[in-house]
Design a binder for these strands. Structure first.
Length: 152
DNA sequence: GTTGAGCGTT
């Protein structure tokens, strides 16, 4: 927006987006609502292009046992997309890390720590199940018997 | 060598 670029010039005067400005948003999010974490997986956004898997790991290592720390690299350009994912052993560690690292600096950039969305649907716990939205898809002439469970 | 919202290369 125009706000961001304006604050950018005011606070820094350089082409680097001001971390101070970004931290305001983070504080607002921090003070408004804290969504409870349900998984030890965290989505880290606002990363610097200099941040790599190792530096991301080192930044979040003190808050718990990190099982994974990954900075997403754009396969086309081969450069970091500016966000990544970390996985702790427990949700408590993830919550602590979120409390400690959200709206904090990493490589001169204010990072955002949010719960990561599930990438793969769990096989035993479907996230959404709306049988009412599919009353009867029997238009193809087939009488689709509802198969309970995937008997592979 | 480019500009910063977002949910991942298997």
């Amino acid at each position: 927006m125009a706000f961001a670029s304006a604050f950018r010039r005011i606070l820094r005067g350089s082409s680097t987006p001001s971390p101070i400005f970004r931290s305001q948003f983070a504080w607002i999010r921090h003070n408004s609502t804290l969504p409870t974490l349900t998984s030890p997986k965290l989505f880290i956004s606002g990363l610097s292009r200099n941040t790599t898997d190792e530096s991301l790991y080192n930044a979040f290592a003190p808050f718990g046992r990190l099982l994974d720390a990954k900075v997403i690299i754009d396969r086309g350009s081969g450069r970091p997309k500016g966000f990544g994912f970390i996985t702790y052993g427990t949700v408590e560690e993830a919550e602590k890390a979120r409390e400690e690292m959200n709206a904090k600096f990493l490589d001169d950039w204010v990072i955002f720590v949010d719960p990561a969305r599930p990438r793969e649907p769990l096989p035993r716990q479907p996230p959404q199940q709306d049988p009412q939205l599919n009353p009867k898809p029997t238009e193809s002439g087939f009488t689709t018997n509802r198969t309970i469970g995937w008997s592979g």
